[in-house]
C-alpha cells in the first residue's frame, strides 16, 4: 500500500532538525531507519504533514566510548551496534538482544534509538537498555538533557521525549565481564516478542554478585524486575538455586492478552524463561 502524502525534510544538523520540529509541531514525524514508521504509514494509520529524516545528520552517528559508558548515537543502526567491538565487549546483553530484533534486512536499516523512542512494549531493545541502567540523551529547544532509562518509558508508545525533542543518543554503562542472555519467546521467528527476558549477571566464585533483569512485553512499557534482581544476589548460579527467585517475576506485571497468549500465560512463561535466561547468562 502507498503511504498518504507528506512533505519530507532531511536536515543536516540536530539544530536544523529541532527547528523543523518546532515549526511543525505534532504534524511532524521523525524518521531514522523508518522500519517501524513506514509500515504504519503504509497502513495509513497515520498521516503526518511532514517526515523529518534524521539519518543524514552526521553528528549523531557512531558508537563511542564515553567514560564508563558506551554511547550509541541516534544514527546507529542495529547492525552498526552488532558490529561494534565496544558493544560486544562491554554490553553483551544489548548485543544478544539485538540479534533477536526482526530480521537481517530490518537490522540493516532500523536504529536502536529509533526503537527506544518508538517504545513498542514488544520491541526487543527497551528491556536490555532499561536493565543496563542506560541514560537517554535528549536534545530540545532548551538544549540537552539526560533522562535515566527508568524514567524514560512512560506508557505504551510514549516516552519522555517531547514533541519538540530528539533522542540523540543512549549511553549505556559498561557491563564488562557480565554474563548475559536475551530469551525471546515467539511462535514464528519473524514475530514480535510474545515476551522477552533480558538478563545480565555478574558471577563471583559461582555465586551471583549482581543481577539485572528486564522484561519485554510484560506491560505497556519495558519493565525492570527489581525484586527478582535482589532475590538473585547471593544465589548460586545454578538452575535450582535461581528457580525460586525467578518464578514470581510476573507478579505485579500487567501483560497484554492477545492472539499469542493470555496475560496469565505470559506471566507463567516469564517465570520459566527468566530462570533459563539467568542460568544462561551465568554461563550455566
Amino acid at each position: 500500500m502507498i503511504p498518504p502524502e507528506f512533505d519530507y525534510a532531511a536536515p543536516g544538523t540536530v539544530s536544523e532538525a529541532l527547528a523543523l520540529l518546532a515549526e511543525h509541531g505534532d504534524e511532524a514525524k521523525v524518521l531514522a531507519g523508518g522500519q517501524s514508521l513506514l509500515p504504519v504509514l503504509r497502513m495509513r494509520l497515520n498521516a503526518p504533514g511532514i517526515v523529518i529524516d534524521i539519518s543524514r545528520i552526521e553528528e549523531i552517528k557512531g558508537i563511542t566510548e564515553s567514560g564508563d559508558a558506551v554511547r550509541i548515537g541516534a544514527g546507529a543502526t542495529y547492525q552498526d551496534v552488532l558490529d561494534s567491538a565496544l558493544v560486544s565487549e562491554h554490553l553483551g546483553l544489548l548485543h544478544k538482544a539485538l540479534t533477536e530484533v526482526a530480521d537481517a534486512q530490518i537490522r540493516h536499516r532500523g536504529t536502536v534509538c529509533g526503537a527506544l523512542v518508538h517504545a513498542d512494549p514488544a520491541g526487543d531493545v527497551g528491556a536490555p537498555v532499561l536493565a543496563l541502567d542506560a541514560r537517554m540523551v535528549i536534545q530540545g529547544p532548551d538544549g540537552e538533557r539526560t533522562v535515566d532509562a527508568s524514567d524514560f518509558f512512560v506508557d505504551l508508545f510514549e516516552t519522555a521525549v517531547g514533541e519538540d525533542e530528539l533522542l540523540t543518543a543512549v549511553e549505556i554503562p559498561k557491563h564488562t565481564g557480565w554474563g548475559a542472555h536475551y530469551e525471546k519467546f515467539v511462535r514464528v521467528s519473524h514475530q514480535w516478542a510474545i515476551i522477552g527476558i533480558a538478563a545480565a549477571v555478574r558471577v563471583e566464585g559461582g555465586t551471583i554478585a549482581e543481577a539485572k533483569v528486564g522484561l519485554t512485553n510484560m506491560g505497556s512499557t519495558p519493565l525492570r524486575a527489581t525484586s527478582v534482581e535482589q532475590a538473585l544476589v547471593g544465589k548460586e548460579a545454578t538452575e535450582d538455586a535461581v528457580a525460586e527467585a525467578c518464578a514470581q517475576v510476573g507478579e505485579g506485571t500487567d501483560p497484554p492478552s492477545d492472539l499469542n497468549g493470555q496475560a496469565d500465560y505470559r506471566k507463567h512463561v516469564a517465570g520459566v524463561l527468566t530462570r533459563r535466561a539467568v542460568v544462561a547468562a551465568a554461563g550455566g
Partner: peptide, 9 residues
C-alpha cells in the same frame, strides 16, 4: 547490504 525496499523511501 540487504534491505526491504518496501520499507525504505
Amino acid at each position: 547490504r540487504s534491505v526491504k525496499s518496501c520499507n525504505v523511501l
